[in-house]
Design a protein around this nucleic acid. Sequence first.
DNA 1: CCCGCTTGGTAGCATGTTGCAACCAACGTG
DNA 2: CACGTTGGTTGCAACATGCTACCAAGCGGG
Lengths: 150, 150
Amino acid sequence: MVTRTRFDDSECPVARSVDAIGDWWSLLIVRDAFDGSRRFGEFQRSLGVAKNILTARLRSLVAGGVLESVPASDGSAYREYVLTPKGEALFPVIVALRQWGEQNFFAPGEPHSQLVDRRHGRQLRTLEVLSADGRRLDPEDTAVHKVADE
Amino acid sequence: MVTRTRFDDSECPVARSVDAIGDWWSLLIVRDAFDGSRRFGEFQRSLGVAKNILTARLRSLVAGGVLESVPASDGSAYREYVLTPKGEALFPVIVALRQWGEQNFFAPGEPHSQLVDRRHGRQLRTLEVLSADGRRLDPEDTAVHKVADE
DNA sequence: CCCGCTTGGTAGCATGTTGCAACCAACGTG
DNA sequence: CACGTTGGTTGCAACATGCTACCAAGCGGG
């Protein structure tokens, strides 16, 4: 039952996101959810995480509105964990992490799982940060505009 | 001295990224680095993290090639921590987390720090996952293509 | 309906990690 | 050259993690 936020500078959206996700395991759970995992056992086998940890993480993701616990799709009495719309909105986060990993932690030609366009089976385009008028922005082209309720 | 990776499924780029960053504090350090923080004390004041933790995180980020320790820019004998190219490549990750936070954890009109285009001071466009030919992709339009060295 | 296997957990304990506070050395400034 | 600042290190207490054992509720077959 975590009520207090870990990071005090929570007017920053990045800190709130980080706090809402919880920990790295949670992020990998979300990744697996995007890949089609739904059942407790699927997550557990895929991640190799201890069951009590998985229990806690699933619960906190449900509490945070990222996952939702629904009746199993196969008609059994068990439950499944599926992404809510809020959880689905994490898609760019996962993709960004994936692309960063692909580009920085694999030797050329080293095998790794790949996220592809289902329609043509081709790799995705690398994510780009764009301005309102569509220019590509690098970190130095941006600034943090403090506060301002707008 | 962490040699072993925490997550065994490390043929997955997401897991490798997560492992390279280390923990959430590290990600907030990177965020602050994008915002212009360079000195130990700046990170410490901005994050409110214990100094021993900050020491450890800075070291592991340097070891991981995300940050680099350089002589201070003001001519003093102190050192500064700046993003390497690999660290700068985390930009989309931070932006994605920021946008997710903005869109899901703030009431409309609630104040929060904002990342803007330095040229016009306007908000950024929301990140989009695109196929090679430029179509916008939702999670269900993609699939994980297992292994395959290519 | 009963027996055994699977699923989805909980409980207890050892170990690792975090956070806090105190301390400290090197730097910088008057 | 004395004193505040910067950038740490050390030790310890508290908490989180991971492992293993255990367990109850499905569920399937005979």
